[in-house]
Design a protein around this nucleic acid. Structure first.
Lengths: 141, 141
DNA sequence: TTAAATTATATCGTGTGCGACATATTTAGC
DNA sequence: GCTAAATATGTCGCACACGATATAATTTAA
């Protein structure tokens, strides 16, 4: 037991997490190219498809991202015509993000993405469940 | 069971993985600021502390990163004085990356990082083991 | 009731991380 | 020996993701 053992790459939990996250992005990108979305734009659209209308603050909390990441990203989604951005009349500090009909249409194309990815992961039901639980435990503590 | 269920954020495995990876980076950064390293530079230094000398290709494979990410990163580590970069005399295509004495010194300061992080994760031994195994299963398939 | 604190968002600069493409060097095939 | 393929690395442009800081709108409190 060396005093430097804790600094070995193979003894880290952070590193495989980081590497797997990168690997996932690489897997998704070719599929998402068909939708003209990046991965972060894709998970943003997931929220939009579900909620139809949200404000930026909700979006930040849901995606665990900061406004300085989302603000320019939302501009790009707007330019692509998938969302609209307006100000809340009651509280002009709030941005109201809404799904457009163009954005709604994209959903039809997107349904093909999750099954294509699932194949790649190659985990058992049990493993997937456990991984899911433990990741949310880390996120929420 | 809706046809769009597979597009719900809460049904994704990719999303919590991605979010946890981001969260880990945010946890590390304040600690790494004391070492004048970014997270990616830190894991690169982990390899250097262990191996002392590597070429860029090995580094790419070890870290699951591409040369277009590592090349400029290595330049920054060189500028900070933690590594040196030379060309292999036998095969001039190969870059030889070597730990400097300055880089070796940094290791002493870095030993404080892993214990500080471990507290944050708050997983049981068993959970950590399982997470570790499953992440490497994904990485290696 | 108005000045201070809080809240929601935007902007800036830095450093990844990637695909696409370019370059230099070595190896293989003939 | 000479050309073609393979290998290792570099460069470019784009899109995150962050901390730090700024700005505008609303709420609170003296």
């Amino acid at each position: 037991m060396d005093k430097y053992d804790s600094l070995l790459l193979k003894n880290q939990l952070c590193f495989p997490t980081y590497a797997v996250a990168n690997k996932i992005l690489r897997k998704y990108q070719p599929l998402l190219d068909n939708l003209n979305l990046t991965y972060t734009q894709y998970i943003t659209m997931m929220v939009m498809w579900e909620k139809k209308t949200v404000n930026e603050k909700e979006l930040c909390e849901t995606l665990y991202l900061k406004t300085n990441t989302l603000a320019p990203l939302l501009q790009r989604l707007k330019e692509k015509g998938y969302i609209s951005i307006t100000k809340d009349k009651k509280d002009k500090r709030n941005l109201v993000i809404s799904l457009t009909s163009e954005g709604e249409k994209l959903r039809e194309k997107a349904v093909d993405v999750p099954p294509s990815i699932a194949e790649e992961f190659n985990l058992s039901e049990e493993e997937a469940m456990f991984l899911y639980k433990i990741l949310y435990k880390i996120l929420d503590n």
